[in-house]
Amino acid sequence: MTNERRAETTAEATARGRTYGAFRCLNCFERNTAPSGAKSFKCPKCGFEWRLSWPMPTQPRIRGPVWETNRRLAEEATAKQTKGEK
């Protein structure tokens, strides 16, 4: 039964899946790593580019998009999509 005291709680069990140092691309959600201290990052899977910051020495986060690149990629993708629909 879910309600009994379990040896390992849900929080403990799911925490084992933590991936320190990695971060997800905010477009395709692929998990990535970046060289320590890198200021920007291009997702190898989808090509979107992000500006990074390093709140902890080993943990980067996405600070924001490289506006021009991502805007262009998004516009291209939607254009393709609408064409496909027609």
């Binding site: 005291r5 379990r6 709680t9 849900t10 929080a11 799911t14 925490a15 899946g17 933590r18």
Partner: peptide
């Protein structure tokens, strides 16, 4: 996702 909840 990995935070304490009902069991804790």
């Amino acid at each position: 996702p990995n935070f304490p909840n009902f069991e804790e």
